[in-house]
Design a protein around this nucleic acid. Sequence first.
DNA 1: CGACGCTACATGCGTGTGCATCAAAGTCCA
DNA 2: TGGACTTTGATGCACACGCATGTAGCGTCG
Lengths: 134, 134
Amino acid sequence: MLAHATIAAVSEVAEDVLVREWRALLARHAAVYNALETELRQRHCIGVSEFEALERLAGCEMGKCRGSELTDTVHLSQSAASRLVARMERDGLVERSMCEMDRRGIFVVLTEKGRERYLEAKPTHRAVLAATMS
Amino acid sequence: MLAHATIAAVSEVAEDVLVREWRALLARHAAVYNALETELRQRHCIGVSEFEALERLAGCEMGKCRGSELTDTVHLSQSAASRLVARMERDGLVERSMCEMDRRGIFVVLTEKGRERYLEAKPTHRAVLAATMS
DNA sequence: CGACGCTACATGCGTGTGCATCAAAGTCCA
DNA sequence: TGGACTTTGATGCACACGCATGTAGCGTCG
């Protein structure tokens, strides 16, 4: 009986630790994400997901990568990622080009404007991280 | 010159660490959040924010707390929190009652159905945390 | 070859979100 | 007391999201 009670107590403690960790993660995420979103939107007219996409593309050979790779990078559903690319194309930050090897897919290509926007936004991004990831 | 280069290098490294940490935080958040959202929605017809609100209310004296406290708990804007309460009221999980001490405000009160829903959902919530917060 | 299944991407739809704003009530100070 | 400022909560609006689905192209196996 004592053993059972002890095990139950240990489980409850472990559960409590997990819950606390999760709440801390939520709070931290919200703080950094909101600050990033605000600053990036205000200063550079892009959101967190746009920045992530730009950064991924800027790190790619030729500034191009497959749509599905972009979907994996931004933490969004496939449909949301598709619309993200559409918005960025509308704003002239990327272009969609056919992928010859796999005609189902597309290449998302960073434009010159997109690269400039990324380089402008990067210091803001880093500064917000430094300020909020204390 | 060497000192400057060294300082720059150190800064870049520190920046890189921050970026890696932020990406890890984003990935972790997305994984846990999506799993929680899916399971809670599927099994108990509530989302992550609804669960947070229920848990906060369940921990309150009399199962009631001020609207603004709830807004602070769920990581949402004030308007989103207001609509969250409206949805939960529509679903019979909470009720809004006038706050006599401060007639601008409201009390959000957990109903019996709301408390039951919370107790049903809690094991799911803990199980998902245990499974995904590895 | 041809049928089947799988993957990549786009899109209609309902819903949730933040921003801006509003009304009502509390607070503070001249 | 009275007027200015703050705080609380609700709501119109535009927009982004996920789910479900549709279309097209790839791959495989009989």
